[in-house]
Design a protein around this nucleic acid. Structure first.
Length: 152
DNA sequence: GCCAACGTTGGC
DNA sequence: GCCAACGTTGGC
């Protein structure tokens, strides 16, 4: 099974928000980038695990893990004119954007900072540590998954 | 708040 | 199909 990384701004929706949701799960809406959507729609499988990453905050880094607990399905916020994720080009027949549900799995006892990830041997090829990457959904290899879990 | 690095849009 | 303009992301 593949592994993933989900980025989110902790001020908007951090791992503690997810943990506080009913059933400790929520839908991961608002992905509005085609590359991220394609990975989500075409490759994600229920039961796979992912890192939860906090971005645009004082200490950017990986804060825990989540489980993908649904198959990909259309992101209905794209059809809602009152949503900040509304997309006038999305329709019922052609939803354009997709999402999955994620469930809180674990919060690490510390933040594995971006800085630390950059300095860790074996993670050099992670898109996350490379310059200019802005995708909110990223694939994580089995090797990288193990290395990062070993840092905690 | 700055700015680099993208991605998207739209005129041609 | 090119490409300039514009918008967004996200670390610092």
């Amino acid at each position: 099974m593949a592994h993933w990384l989900f980025k989110s701004e902790p001020d908007v929706f951090g791992i503690d928000h997810l943990k506080a949701m009913p059933g400790k799960k929520d839908h991961w809406d608002g992905v509005r980038n085609y590359q991220a959507r394609n990975m989500m729609r075409d490759q994600m499988v229920k039961g796979e695990t992912a890192f939860f990453y906090h971005s645009s905050c004082p200490e950017p880094g990986i804060v825990g893990t989540v489980t993908i607990c649904s198959a990909p399905y259309p992101d209905h916020t794209a059809l809602d004119p009152t949503s900040k994720y509304y997309d006038p080009k999305a329709t019922e027949d052609n939803p354009r954007w997709y999402m999955v549900d994620v469930r809180y799995k674990k919060k690490f006892n510390r933040v594995i900072t971006l800085q630390e990830l950059k300095e860790t041997k074996g993670l050099e090829e992670m898109p996350l540590v490379k310059k200019g990457n802005r995708l909110s959904i990223l694939p994580v290899s089995e090797k990288e998954w193990d290395i990062i879990n070993g840092l905690v």
